[in-house]
Nucleic acid binder design. Structure first.
Lengths: 233, 233
DNA sequence: TTTTAGATGTGACCTAAATCACGTCAGGCG
DNA sequence: CGCCTGACGTGATTTAGGTCACATCTAAAA
């Protein structure tokens, strides 16, 4: 964690939520926000902990997980550049509902809860933007519940590959070790390995160490076409 | 669905969110809210459908479910008297993230989206109360994700029994058929039957048709004590 | 009282996926 | 160069829990 360098307005504007925000509120924000660095594996906050700040990812990736009881870990999602996470003081959430952990070297912008409380009265645009984030969060979690409940592990792996793929020219690739991928979808490394091998044999992906290259994204699409999910037959 | 009888202010006040609301906003609310009746099994709204109203349960129970692909159904929660559900126009949610279905004969109070849009400017208390509801929803969904990801079916059944138990004197009981209980926890009837039988043999519950009586609630507590969930050992 | 539909009990079986127990392979480094 | 260490590959075994196929059992309807 390096001594905090002030955040520049332009940097803040790279976060989609703040992209179109007028100068005035942006300046208020950078005045109260703090820059933080985390090393891979470092825990940013723990589930249940009291810490009502909002976090924005400037660089690197953060994984949001639920880990419990038997040591099993269930990944909920992976936040990359521009994403926002943390309990929102706009709600009455006092405890973090999940754990956040750095996946790579990450740089975060932190908006402390008290600061947001003061700002929220001033700029309704800001409030609206944040609410929008949380509506997406709700939808996402609802989706996670569905996926966990009725998808097979293989489908979840495929889904995870598509969700976290980076595009670079024509190629898509995922920069995760199989171990981490396993944690994301809530399974174990061996199962991931086997499934990736079978995908490779079918020519759908190519495996390298610490990276999976997606050759045929279409073949990874969810089980039964996404549309028309209301006629289970 | 019977011709809509107007909603009385006292009825509205039985909904916890509105309990302490001053007379003025309550009157505005009853003016725009609508009473609706649904028969058991009737679908209130479908996942994906566009319908941004808020629903409050006056009588009976509503289950919120995700059903998908292979016909499997995953219950997310059960809303009883006083609970609130539906996509919130305070967010930008346009589509229902899940399906709502009447479990018994239910009476609902509906607050149409446009009406809420108009009211929200007027009473900040109302807005705050609704945001609070949604923060709980977020926490709940996060919990569902955890539960689905790492609990065993037996634990989920136990959890469901505790969550939806009615108290009556010293006895707690759950008014659900095994079929419905199975849908709630995302499994099949046979598994529920077997687990309930074994609980009965251990003297923890007594099974009647359409109802489970809980004799020893402590024995149903989650796998490893709820507190201190941040040291997975 | 019969009928009948729904709710429940239970065994036999089968499959996905976790667990265990290795063996391989590549890169960093003393 | 050998020596680790961390990532990957793969079989064998085990198990939770879903599927199938029935046998009750009960309460409400006829």
């Amino acid at each position: 964690m390096i001594a905090t360098l002030p955040i520049k307005p332009d940097e803040l504007r790279e976060i989609p939520v703040f992209h179109r925000l007028p100068d005035e509120p942006v300046h208020s924000l950078v005045a109260v926000m703090v820059r933080r660095h985390y090393a891979p594996g470092q825990v940013i906050f723990l589930e249940g902990e009291q810490a009502n700040s909002l976090w924005f990812v400037s660089e690197g990736r953060v994984k949001i997980i639920k880990h419990s009881l038997n040591g099993r870990v269930q990944g909920l999602c992976l936040m990359n550049r521009g994403k926002c996470f943390g309990s929102c003081p706009l709600f009455d959430m006092e405890n973090n509902p999940a754990t956040a952990q750095a996946l790579d070297n990450v740089t975060l912008f932190v908006l402390p809860g008290e600061a947001l409380q003061q700002l929220k009265g001033r700029d309704p645009h800001l409030v609206k933007a944040l609410l929008h984030i949380y509506s997406q969060r709700l939808e996402h979690l609802a989706r996670v519940s569905e996926v966990l409940g009725s998808w097979t592990v293989s489908d979840r792996i495929n889904d995870c590959l598509l969700t976290y793929a980076n595009r670079e020219g024509q190629q898509s690739y995922v920069e995760l070790t199989q171990e981490k991928l396993a944690a994301m979808v809530g399974t174990v490394r061996e199962v991931v390995t086997r499934h990736l091998r079978s995908l490779e044999r079918e020519g759908i992906v190519r495996n390298e160490t610490g990276r999976i290259i997606i050759l045929n994204a279409d073949a990874l699409l969810p089980p039964c076409g996404c549309e028309d999910r209301r006629t289970p037959a």
